[in-house]
Protein backbone atom coordinates (compact mmCIF):
# COMPACT_ATOMS: atom_id res chain seq x y z
CA UNK A 1 0.00 0.00 0.00
CA UNK A 2 1.13 3.54 -0.68
CA UNK A 3 0.93 6.13 2.06
CA UNK A 4 1.59 9.84 2.09
CA UNK A 5 3.32 11.14 5.20
CA UNK A 6 2.29 14.80 5.48
CA UNK A 7 4.62 16.82 7.66
CA UNK A 8 3.00 19.66 9.60
CA UNK A 9 5.14 22.10 11.55
CA UNK A 10 4.76 25.26 13.50
CA UNK A 11 7.70 27.32 12.15
CA UNK A 12 7.93 29.06 15.53
CA UNK A 13 8.76 25.81 17.33
CA UNK A 14 11.13 24.52 14.66
CA UNK A 15 14.86 24.71 15.53
CA UNK A 16 16.42 27.93 14.21
CA UNK A 17 18.87 27.81 11.32
CA UNK A 18 22.48 27.54 12.46
CA UNK A 19 21.75 26.10 15.94
CA UNK A 20 22.98 22.64 16.95
CA UNK A 21 19.31 21.54 17.11
CA UNK A 22 18.90 22.57 13.48
CA UNK A 23 21.92 20.49 12.53
CA UNK A 24 20.48 17.57 14.44
CA UNK A 25 17.16 17.92 12.61
CA UNK A 26 18.86 17.98 9.22
CA UNK A 27 20.87 14.92 10.22
CA UNK A 28 17.61 13.24 11.22
CA UNK A 29 16.04 13.97 7.83
CA UNK A 30 19.13 12.69 6.08
CA UNK A 31 19.04 9.48 8.14
CA UNK A 32 15.30 9.01 7.51
CA UNK A 33 15.84 9.45 3.74
CA UNK A 34 18.70 6.96 3.72
CA UNK A 35 16.66 4.44 5.71
CA UNK A 36 13.66 4.71 3.36
CA UNK A 37 15.95 4.34 0.34
CA UNK A 38 17.85 1.42 1.83
CA UNK A 39 14.56 -0.36 2.63
CA UNK A 40 13.30 0.36 -0.87
CA UNK A 41 10.06 1.92 0.34
CA UNK A 42 10.37 5.53 -0.82
CA UNK A 43 8.32 6.60 -3.84
CA UNK A 44 8.89 10.35 -3.55
CA UNK A 45 9.45 13.07 -1.01
CA UNK A 46 9.85 16.84 -1.10
CA UNK A 47 10.11 19.77 1.25
CA UNK A 48 7.98 22.84 0.61
CA UNK A 49 8.94 26.48 0.82
CA UNK A 50 7.31 28.47 3.61
CA UNK A 51 3.61 29.47 3.62
CA UNK A 52 4.60 33.09 2.97
CA UNK A 53 5.29 31.87 -0.59
CA UNK A 54 1.87 30.19 -0.93
CA UNK A 55 -0.85 31.33 -3.31
CA UNK A 56 -4.35 29.88 -3.09
CA UNK A 57 -6.94 29.73 -5.82
CA UNK A 58 -10.61 28.89 -6.00
CA UNK A 59 -13.32 29.32 -8.59
CA UNK A 60 -16.60 30.78 -7.39
CA UNK A 61 -19.52 31.15 -9.79
CA UNK A 62 -17.14 30.81 -12.70
CA UNK A 63 -14.83 33.50 -11.39
CA UNK A 64 -11.27 32.68 -10.42
CA UNK A 65 -10.19 34.12 -7.11
CA UNK A 66 -6.49 34.18 -6.35
CA UNK A 67 -5.35 34.85 -2.82
CA UNK A 68 -2.12 35.34 -0.98
CA UNK A 69 -1.45 32.71 1.69
CA UNK A 70 -2.18 29.07 2.48
CA UNK A 71 -5.54 27.26 2.37
CA UNK A 72 -6.03 27.34 6.11
CA UNK A 73 -4.70 29.87 8.60
CA UNK A 74 -3.37 27.49 11.23
CA UNK A 75 -0.36 27.53 13.45
CA UNK A 76 0.99 24.33 11.92
CA UNK A 77 1.67 24.34 8.19
CA UNK A 78 2.22 21.61 5.65
CA UNK A 79 5.98 21.69 5.25
CA UNK A 80 6.72 18.63 3.16
CA UNK A 81 5.77 15.08 2.41
CA UNK A 82 6.96 11.58 1.64
CA UNK A 83 5.15 8.92 -0.35
CA UNK A 84 6.15 5.42 0.71
CA UNK A 85 5.11 1.93 -0.36
CA UNK A 86 4.83 -0.47 2.59
CA UNK A 87 2.67 -3.48 3.53
CA UNK A 88 0.46 -1.90 6.20
CA UNK A 89 -0.29 1.03 8.53
CA UNK A 90 2.10 -0.16 11.24
CA UNK A 91 4.99 -0.11 8.76
CA UNK A 92 3.96 3.36 7.59
CA UNK A 93 3.85 4.58 11.21
CA UNK A 94 7.34 3.19 11.75
CA UNK A 95 8.70 5.42 8.97
CA UNK A 96 6.60 8.37 10.12
CA UNK A 97 8.33 8.10 13.50
CA UNK A 98 11.72 8.52 11.78
CA UNK A 99 10.77 12.01 10.57
CA UNK A 100 12.41 14.55 12.90
CA UNK A 101 9.45 16.96 12.71
CA UNK A 102 7.35 14.40 14.63
CA UNK A 103 9.21 15.67 17.71
CA UNK A 104 7.92 19.25 17.44
CA UNK A 105 5.14 19.02 14.85
CA UNK A 106 2.75 16.36 13.55
CA UNK A 107 3.07 13.76 10.83
CA UNK A 108 -0.26 12.76 9.29
CA UNK A 109 -0.32 9.33 7.66
CA UNK A 110 -2.83 8.92 4.82
CA UNK A 111 -3.25 5.98 2.44
CA UNK A 112 -3.26 6.95 -1.25
CA UNK A 113 -6.35 6.14 -3.25
CA UNK A 114 -5.87 3.08 -5.40
CA UNK A 115 -6.95 3.73 -9.00
CA UNK A 116 -5.68 0.48 -10.40
CA UNK A 117 -7.25 -2.20 -8.25
CA UNK A 118 -6.35 -4.99 -10.67
CA UNK A 119 -2.79 -4.56 -9.38
Amino acid sequence: MQYMLLIYNDPASEPAYGTPEFKEMMGGYFAANEQMKADGVIVSGEGLQGVETATSLRIKAGKTETMDGPFAETREHLGGYYVIDVPDLDAALKYAALIPSAHFGTVEVRPLMNYNPAG
Binding site: M1, Y3, P87, D88, L89, D90, K94, V109, P111
Partner: peptide, 14 residues
Protein backbone atom coordinates in the same frame (compact mmCIF):
# COMPACT_ATOMS: atom_id res chain seq x y z
CA UNK B 1 -9.67 -1.76 5.54
CA UNK B 2 -8.83 1.62 3.94
CA UNK B 3 -5.94 2.63 6.22
CA UNK B 4 -4.31 -0.78 5.99
CA UNK B 5 -4.48 -1.71 9.68
CA UNK B 6 -3.13 -5.23 9.61
CA UNK B 7 -4.55 -8.25 11.40
CA UNK B 8 -1.21 -9.07 12.95
CA UNK B 9 0.42 -9.25 16.34
CA UNK B 10 2.64 -6.13 16.51
CA UNK B 11 6.41 -6.27 16.11
CA UNK B 12 8.48 -6.16 19.33
CA UNK B 13 9.29 -2.44 18.93
CA UNK B 14 5.56 -1.61 19.03
Amino acid sequence: AAAGISFAVPEPEF
